[in-house]
């Protein structure tokens, strides 16, 4: 019963709210323009209007962003909510969806109204201020009308220890990797940046060249150290490190309270992907799906997405049992 209530509120805030806001916005816009083909200002630069387009640009933008972005965010949040997961992040996502919708709807509608009823040289700045205020207000409202959510993560599944005969050494070696699609996008992005940097040097714009080169280098370094991790699990414990050695995480077998298999949803459990620190847990989250969940004796969790999490959990469970037996 209570669960339905949480999900219903999230849908109301994250989908119903944006639908209402953007539909009202579009209705006002349609009522204010003489015709859909009329030419309107679609972009303001620092020194005034610098982009023009047909009037239908604004309602289309309102619907595409004001309804599309919330739908995308909710597409991440809803499956987790339906599975029974709860977290402050799952309460925040619908509120962000509503705030985004309010932002883009106010910008679009305000832009149309300023041109329809304002003086020809009216500034767009008040509209932007109103839009950010509306976004904050809508986001805040979206947050408070949802019930508080105590953390409930999907139950992690214990696995049986991979027993080893005395004298046998057992090691699991592998990689935690991103999916091919996101990886391709990142590689493409750093390639484009590198190309842009070269182009800036060719053009001879020194300041721009230095900035773009620095950004390209930073992105390339981040991509190369944050997308692949080498993982080793054996009797000593767990070792996770990037190809260049940093960042690295090691957990000694004696510090492992339990090693289990879990189902990871990056955005809703860790607020995104990559190396994530959240209260109570550290995550190396490169995709959604099966992951290894190691609880330390202090209670802090370490989660890493791995295809063969089951085997790794088995190795670590056996290692932890042996380490604890040696201590007692």
């Amino acid at each position: 019963m209570r669960q339905d209530h949480v999900v219903r509120r999230a849908v109301l805030v994250g989908l119903g709210g944006p639908a209402l806001v953007s539909c009202v916005g579009v209705a006002v816009q349609l009522a204010s323009v003489p015709s859909l083909g009329a030419e309107l200002i679609t972009h303001w630069g620092p020194s005034g209007p610098d982009g023009y387009g047909p009037a239908w640009t604004w309602p289309v933008l309102t619907l595409a962003v004001g309804l599309g972005m919330p739908a995308l965010l909710m597409a991440f949040a809803l499956p987790s909510l339906r599975r029974g997961e709860r977290s402050p992040m799952l309460r925040l996502l619908p509120a962000i969806a509503l705030g985004l919708s309010a932002l883009i709807t106010t910008v679009s509608t305000g832009s149309v109204l300023v041109q329809r009823y304002g003086a020809p040289d009216d500034s767009i700045v008040p509209v932007m201020i109103a839009a950010f205020a509306a976004a904050l207000l809508a986001g805040f409202l979206g947050w408070v009308v949802q019930p508080a959510q105590d953390m409930i993560v999907p139950a992690s599944r214990p696995v049986s220890p991979l027993a080893t005969a005395p004298g046998t050494r057992i090691v699991w070696l592998g990689r935690a990797e991103m999916g091919r699609g996101p990886m391709l996008v990142l590689v493409l992005a750093s390639t484009v940046l590198a190309g842009l940097a070269v182009w800036m040097w060719v053009l001879g714009d020194l300041a721009a060249a230095i900035i773009v080169t620095a950004v390209a280098l930073l992105v390339t370094v981040l991509v190369s150290i944050m997308t692949v991790f080498h993982v080793r699990a054996d009797a000593r414990g767990l070792s996770v490190r990037s190809p260049i050695g940093f960042p690295r995480f090691t957990i000694a077998a004696s510090d492992i309270a339990s090693a289990t298999v879990t189902d990871v949803s990056g955005l809703t459990q860790f607020g995104g992907w990559g190396v994530r620190m959240i209260p109570g847990a550290t995550g190396v989250i490169l995709r959604n799906g099966p992951g290894l969940d190691v609880a330390r004796r202090s209670g802090r969790r370490f989660v890493i997405t791995l295809d063969d999490a089951e085997t790794v959990a088995g190795v670590l469970t056996a290692a932890a049992e042996r380490a604890h037996a040696d201590q007692d």
Binding site: A165, T168, R169, I170, G174, T311, V315
Partner: peptide, 9 residues
């Protein structure tokens, strides 16, 4: 990849 070795084997 899971590797098991037994140096006594």
């Amino acid at each position: 990849m899971l590797i098991r070795i037994d140096s006594g084997a």
